[in-house]
């Protein structure tokens, strides 16, 4: 217990102060924001069990949408395509974005500033412009529309998100980190791999999460750069709006979220076991 005379004037010693209050306040705020984030998701899950197709009123509990989903090859195929494209896009974006951020930070390239600005263009450019111009590019290069073109297109607007996140983490990095590694005999490449990457990991993970989300849900660019065999989930979903969104979509989303959540929690449990 601190001596009251040492406290700054005006501070009430009987109220909990400092880190505890801060933590409680932020914790409560976080809970509220999570409630906001998950409110429509909860609704979505509830509707996946709703008997009515139009999702406006609750007419009865049913699991028939889940059953129908398993027979819906078109939808499942679209979902699979989305996963494939999003995963590949994320992998490529992480590689390009991280290495680019590091190289720009570490080394002085001519026209550095211009490079930095160029990277922002895919973020700024409206999706329809990017979609149309990439379509024209692919057609004139003779590349058939399919997975390849789709992944290229998605990566182009996803990697800046990784890059910006990693750049932010690089600001204020302790320069002695790399120096120490090299003093111990590591080449710049090895130092990068063994020391810098672990430091950057939270930014890389954040960038990967953002890339995956952006790619998974991308509609407009996909319209212009996908082929018949690479129809993704957003393309199917947007088409359904006119006849009413099929509750099978709710079922699909519910299962996907549930599967991901289970995976994440399971991986946390296993990491805990490792540290024991």
């Amino acid at each position: 217990m601190m001596d009251a005379s040492l406290l700054p004037p005006g501070r009430r010693w009987w109220l909990p102060q400092g880190p505890a209050v801060q933590r409680a306040f932020f914790g409560g705020w976080t809970v509220a924001v999570f409630a906001f984030l998950y409110l429509p998701i909860a609704l979505l899950v509830v509707y996946s069990f709703n008997d009515s197709k139009l999702n406006l009123y609750w007419t009865g509990f049913t699991t028939k949408w889940y059953g129908m989903l398993f027979g819906n090859e078109v939808l499942l195929r679209a979902f699979q395509n989305s996963l494939i494209v999003a995963t590949a896009t994320t992998a490529l974006s992480v590689v390009i974005g991280t290495s680019a951020a590091w190289l720009l930070y570490r080394y002085r390239f001519p026209a550095q500033q211009t490079l930095g600005l160029l990277i922002f263009i895919p973020m700024v450019m409206p999706e329809v412009l990017m979609g149309v111009s990439l379509l024209v590019l692919f057609v004139s290069l003779g590349i058939p529309l399919g997975y390849t073109t789709l992944i290229i297109a998605h990566t182009t607007f996803c990697f800046p998100f990784v890059l910006v996140g990693v750049q932010a983490r690089l600001q204020g990095i302790d320069p002695s980190l790399e120096e120490a590694a090299m003093d111990l005999g590591a080449t710049p490449l090895k130092a990068f791999w063994l020391v810098i990457i672990p430091y950057l990991l939270p930014a890389i993970v954040a960038g990967a999460l953002m890339s995956f989300t952006l790619s998974f849900d991308e509609y407009i660019v996909t319209i212009f750069t996908s082929g018949a065999d690479s129809q993704t989930l957003p393309l199917k979903v947007y088409g359904m709006v006119r006849v009413g969104l099929n509750p099978q979509l709710n079922a699909l989303s519910t299962m996907f979220i549930a599967a991901t959540a289970v995976l994440v929690i399971a991986s946390q449990v296993f990491t805990r076991k490792k540290t024991v």
């Binding site: 379509l135 319209i223 212009f224 996908s226 082929g227 018949a228 129809q231 947007y238």
Partner: peptide, 13 residues
């Protein structure tokens, strides 16, 4: 099957 959501989109592609 490939889809579009407007005639102009179809024409553009």
């Amino acid at each position: 099957v490939e889809n579009y959501s407007s005639n102009e989109e179809m024409l553009a592609k």
